[in-house]
Structures are given as structure tokens and as C-alpha cells.
Amino acid sequence: MQEVSLKNRTIFITGASRGIGREIALRCAREGANIVIAAKSDEPHPKLPGTIHSVAEEVVEAGGQALAIKVDVRDEESVKAAVAKAAEHFGGIDVVINNAGAISLTPVEVTPVKKYDLMNQINSRAVFVCSQAALPWLKKSEFGGHIINLSPPLNLDEKWLKPYAPYTLSKYGMTLLTLGMSGEFQRYGIAVNSLWPRTTIATAALNNVGDSSLNDRSRTPAIMADAAREILVTPDLALTGQTLLDEDLLRERGHTEFDHYAYNPEKADQLFPDLFL
């Protein structure tokens, strides 16, 4: 199976101003891709690093082309406008990576309705909105369109439902859309997959739901970026409708060394499994 180059492919990434989204942007940029950094962070945050503009500069430095667009994935019109602007700027869209996310690890009893709505809007609903908005351009992609949703395999064990069903619902909704869109869009030559980390990933989001000590037992976002790249260079619908784990996919593709992904190399053998596994 011959890989498809990422050079000149236009990749629309939500939530790309930091964390996993930023890392995927830079990984693809190193192969000459056009990166659309679509996120809300157009001004510096007092506690969180990165804006759409700083990532755009990094993308160019890495060897790609960049377009920074402020977008709220909860707003259908904002998404439509961002997708249209990206397609006009680069001449189309080849990939959508639904990376933007919201998390609250709380049970039904104490989860405010506003938080419930926020998670479902930014997680599952945004996959629907962004994928639908980009579909006309994905259909036309000369490379074969791709959608990647950062969502987990479906695991109905009660331990993933009882403690935080609202969040679980919003993430599993993303995965159900993966499975449904894969079947629906196959006739257009568009591959749709979910990607999830086998271990926790050291990001600001992780620190918000835990504490910084968990970083030492986590991997860096680079492993997710490398795994996303493996999906995108797979041609001709050879990989679609799958709920993939980063490490497993990389092993299947011949990668054998993983210690360099550890946030703290001294604790590479003490990694903490991510949710839903």
C-alpha cells in the first residue's frame, strides 16, 4: 500500500491553538501541508499558552502554509464561514480533524445543565456541524477526503457510565457519528475514523481535570500527532470506520519505540491508561 503525501493537502483542525490539535498541525506542516487553525483563542490567555496566531507562525516555521481563523464550533454560522474561508484561501479542504473538546468528569446529579449542554455542543454536535459544513469540499478532494474525530472506542462498562455519564455521552456520540459517517460517506471516497490515546496525554486539559502530577505518567501529544499522520497517509479507504488507539496503530505500522513519547522518560514504564479503555 503506497502512502499518500501530505504535501499541499489542506487540513482543517478545530481546537488547534494548543495541545493535541497544535501538535497535529505542526506534524502535518513538516510535510508541507496547508493547515487551518480553527479555534476560539485569538488573544493570549492568562493561564494557557498559545493562540491561533502563534500556532500559525509555528506552522510556517515547520514548513507548512497556515490560515488562522477564529471560530466557535458551537455556532453553525461561524463554522460555515470558517470552512468557506479556508476552502477559498487554499482552494479546497481535504481533511477535517474534530479535536475541539470540553470535559467535566461529574455524574448526572451534580452536572449543571449548562455544562451538559456545553460538552455536547463542543464534542458530539461540533463533529456533526463541522463535518457537514466541510462535506462539499471533502467530496472534491483529489487525495480522498478524511475526517478524524478525537473520540474513544465504545465501552459500555458501567465504570465509564456511572461516574460521568454526561461526558461519556458526548464523547461516545462523536464515535457513533464516526461509524455512521464512515458508511454514509464511503460512496464519496471519504474515510472517517476515531482516534484516542492509550495513555493520558500531558495537556492543559489533563491538568484541568486532574493535577500536574499526572503529567509524569503521561505521554506527550506527539504520539497522537504521529498516529493521526498514519491515518491521513492511508489511501483509498483502506482505513475507515475504525476506533483507533494511537499506540496500537503505530505498532501496526511498524513503530517499536515509544519511550520518547513519555512526558517524563524516567516514568515511561508507569503510564496511566486513558479513559474508556
Rank of each mutant, 00 (worst) to 15 (best):
V129G: 06
Q65N: 15
L169P: 00
I103V: 15
D72N: 07
I103D: 10
A66D: 04
E61N: 07
I103F: 13
G145W: 05
V108T: 12
N120K: 05
K80N: 14
V55S: 08
I103A: 15
S104K: 13
N149Q: 01
E88F: 09
E76V: 14
A56K: 13
V83L: 07
F90T: 03
S124F: 14
M174S: 10
K159G: 09
N120V: 10
Y164T: 11
L156Q: 10
V59S: 00
E61W: 05
K139Y: 00
E58S: 15
V110L: 11
P136A: 11
I52S: 04
H146Y: 05
E57D: 15
D157I: 02
C130L: 10
Y164I: 10
A87H: 10
P163A: 09
S141E: 04
N149F: 01
A100P: 02
V59W: 10
H146P: 01
G92H: 04
K139I: 07
I93L: 09
E158S: 15
E109Q: 12
I122G: 03
Y164H: 13
L105S: 06
C130N: 11
E142T: 04
K80F: 12
G91Q: 04
E88I: 09
G64Y: 03
V127S: 04
A133M: 09
I147A: 01
P152D: 03
E57M: 12
S104A: 14
I147L: 13
D94F: 02
Y116E: 14
V108Y: 01
K139G: 00
E76H: 14
L135E: 01
A126F: 10
A81E: 12
V113I: 08
V79A: 04
G145I: 05
F143Q: 13
P163H: 11
I103T: 14
N123A: 02
K159W: 06
V79G: 00
S104Y: 10
A84F: 09
E158F: 02
K47Q: 14
M174V: 11
G91V: 02
K80M: 09
N98K: 08
G63Y: 02
S151E: 06
L161W: 08
E61A: 10
S124M: 15
K70Q: 14
S131K: 10
A134C: 05
I103R: 15
K85I: 04
I103G: 12
F143I: 03
R125A: 12
N149M: 00
A133H: 07
V127E: 12
T51F: 00
K162V: 15
G64I: 03
A165I: 08
V96L: 01
Y172W: 14
A81V: 00
P163G: 09
M119F: 08
H53C: 08
V59D: 00
L118K: 12
D117F: 14
L169G: 00
H146C: 00
T168D: 02
V71P: 02
S151M: 03
A126Q: 13
P107M: 06
F143R: 09
A66E: 04
R74H: 07
P153E: 08
V96I: 12
L67R: 02
W137F: 13
V113E: 05
S141V: 02
V83F: 01
Q132D: 03
E88H: 08
L161G: 02
T168C: 13
S78P: 08
Y167L: 11
Q121M: 15
Y116Q: 07
E77G: 00
W160V: 04
I148R: 00
A165Q: 09
A56Y: 11
V59F: 03
A81P: 03
A100K: 04
Q132W: 07
L169H: 03
V71I: 03
N99E: 05
Y172E: 05
